[in-house]
């Protein structure tokens, strides 16, 4: 039971949860091994750097292990862990947002052309999201990827719904501009920059 990576893939979700509830370090490591890579993506989307993302990942996993006793299994374990990751990331970002509060931003005219991200590597997409302004990054993640409504985002971040919408629009247009450049590059040179 020493190697969490080995037992992690052999155990069912319930077994993992039970083991973690008992505080068994091997089960905790198994759970971590199972979800850490996916969760690292979640944390990275809300962070500006890998180090920052790892800090959030660490803090969130500690919360997972400390509160797994209260997990009632109404949702999938992965969904529950993702929610903890997002909340922890938002808590970390809130401190910055307190200093630089989100405000309504001017809408940028979206490009008329259809832009596909099919040929763009996920790492590039991640870089693009990370390059967004702080508020845009958070709202885009919450709205486009996590699937929250603007109302929920507004409540969670303590901003107005209009601010959430305008931040999202700005994020989207910035991403589209960037994607447009990338697709032009791809058309010219035939491969994506990774």
């Amino acid at each position: 039971m020493k190697n969490g990576r080995i037992i992690g893939y052999m155990l069912s979700e319930n077994e993992l949860i039970d083991g973690c509830r008992k505080g068994d370090r091997a089960f905790q490591k198994a759970l971590y091994e199972r979800y850490c890579r996916k969760m690292m993506v979640v944390c990275s989307r809300y962070s500006k750097s890998t180090a920052e993302a790892e800090d959030v990942l660490q803090e969130a996993f500690v919360k997972v292990f400390q509160s797994i006793a209260g997990f009632r299994q109404e949702a999938k374990l992965e969904t529950w862990i993702t929610r903890i990751m997002v909340n922890t990331a938002l808590n970390a970002q809130r401190k910055k947002l307190y200093l630089f509060p989100m405000v309504d931003v001017e809408e940028i005219n979206l490009p008329e052309e259809e832009i596909s991200i099919a040929n763009i590597h996920v790492n590039q997409l991640l870089d693009m999201i990370r390059a967004l302004p702080q508020g845009c990054q958070i709202v885009f993640n919450l709205f486009a990827i996590e699937g929250y409504s603007h109302k929920e985002i507004a409540e969670q971040l303590g901003i107005s719904e209009g601010t959430s919408k305008s931040q999202f629009s700005r994020a989207k247009s910035l991403l589209q501009q960037r994607l447009l450049k990338e697709s032009t590059y791809y058309e010219r040179y035939g491969e994506a920059k990774i």
Partner: peptide
């Protein structure tokens, strides 16, 4: 456009460092 982002990140994985 939004869904394509969601799909792109859905199965994505990044390994964190061992120190985590």
């Amino acid at each position: 456009f939004e869904d394509s982002f969601k799909d792109a990140f859905d199965q994505a994985e990044i390994s964190p460092s061992e120190s985590v």
